[in-house]
Amino acid sequence: MEDMVHDALRQNESWQASTSNNIEEAPNEETQRFFNFLLDANQPLYGGASDSKLSMCVRLLACKSNWNIPNQGIDFIAKMVMDATPIKSGLPKTYYDAKKVCIKVGITIAED
């Protein structure tokens, strides 16, 4: 997701450079909030981890979608993962938590 955002910004930067006098404008508050959330969501869960909060949320929602698991089943899986890992911060606790993270970064979630 982060690579896609950077690619889009680079394309936008080249267009802006040709249409302006290289005056850099600070992002508005909503955009800055989105980028801050995206950076936070893409941080590794712990040192050396290959998964981030966002990737874990997407994987949980993929389980729900691929195998038609009810929300309570996803809540159970999320709790099981939380119980089995030493580091709890960043992991979604419920289906609703995972869904919120995905929606904040613009991933569309089908209604249940």
Rank of each mutant, 00 (worst) to 15 (best):
E2P: 11
D3I: 08
M4Q: 13
M4F: 09
V5Y: 08
H6K: 13
D7K: 07
A8N: 15
A8P: 06
R10G: 10
Q11M: 06
N12Y: 11
E13C: 14
S14G: 07
S14H: 09
T19N: 10
T19S: 10
S20C: 04
N21W: 08
N22M: 10
N22I: 08
E24Y: 07
E24L: 15
E25C: 04
E25L: 13
E25Y: 15
A26H: 08
A26S: 10
A26E: 12
N28K: 09
N28G: 13
E30Q: 10
T31D: 11
R33I: 06
R33T: 08
R33A: 15
R33L: 10
R33V: 05
R33H: 01
N36V: 03
N36G: 06
L39T: 07
A41N: 00
N42P: 09
Q43C: 03
L45I: 02
L45V: 00
G48C: 03
A49R: 05
A49H: 04
S50K: 13
S50H: 12
S50C: 09
D51T: 07
D51N: 09
S52E: 00
K53M: 05
K53H: 03
K53T: 10
L54W: 04
M56W: 05
M56K: 08
V58A: 12
R59A: 11
A62K: 13
A62D: 15
C63V: 10
K64Q: 11
K64P: 07
S65D: 12
N66C: 15
W67G: 03
W67H: 09
N68V: 04
I69H: 00
I69L: 14
P70M: 02
P70Y: 00
N71L: 09
G73H: 04
I74F: 00
I74S: 01
I74D: 06
D75T: 02
F76C: 15
I77M: 06
I77K: 04
A78F: 00
A78C: 02
K79E: 13
M80R: 15
V81L: 12
M82G: 11
M82K: 14
D83R: 11
A84H: 07
A84F: 05
A84V: 01
P86K: 08
L91C: 00
L91V: 05
Y96I: 08
D97G: 08
A98S: 06
K100P: 06
K100E: 13
C102Q: 00
C102K: 01
I107P: 08
A110T: 13
E111Y: 05
